[in-house]
């Protein structure tokens, strides 16, 4: 499939692999009642937001899964910023959930983590990125820092 010539390209296969890891590991953390695993996922998400090249789950896709042909790339014209925002926001929520769990607040802690599971599942299963939606609403409202605008279509 041809790809439009633009420097605003995002590999959505990498995003989906990232979400699959997040969902899978957070579910595992819940089943095993293992807050430390949730904290690890939060750390990976936040580090990947601050330094995308260090995003562990996307590195697994890029360095292991894609070269072996296990997952095909799906590169489309898109802004990377909203996806980074979504990951960062999700990372903050998971971090708060993990902190709540370490503090003994079990129900709020797991509720926050399940919120991220649900939203990541919505993105993975249906293609709706809640974080991206929030990003573009903030962009429309002129909130400083949310500068990435979609390129005007011809």
């Amino acid at each position: 499939m041809s790809v439009q010539s633009t420097d605003r390209l995002v590999d959505h296969a990498a995003i989906r692999v990232n979400q699959a890891f997040i969902i899978g590991l957070l579910l595992l953390a819940f089943v095993l009642n293992w807050p430390a695993l949730a904290a690890f996922v939060a750390a990976v998400m936040l580090l990947g937001t601050l330094a995308p090249d260090l995003a562990l789950f996307q590195r697994i896709y890029r360095d292991l899964l894609k070269p072996r042909g296990l997952i095909r790339p799906h590169v489309i014209a898109d802004n990377p910023e909203p996806h980074r925002f979504a990951q960062g926001f999700g990372g903050v929520v998971v971090a708060l959930g993990a902190l709540a769990l370490f503090g003994g607040w079990t129900v709020p802690g797991w509720a926050l983590i399940w919120l991220v599971i649900a939203l990541a599942g919505l993105n993975l299963g249906v293609g709706f990125c809640a974080g991206c939606f929030v990003y573009y609403q903030l962009n429309r409202l002129g909130v400083p820092g949310f500068r990435a605008r979609p390129i005007r279509q011809e």
Partner: peptide
């Protein structure tokens, strides 16, 4: 679609 939507280029 919307002009405020970059993936809409691909969908189009």
């Amino acid at each position: 679609r919307s002009d405020l939507c970059l993936p809409c280029q691909t969908q189009g």
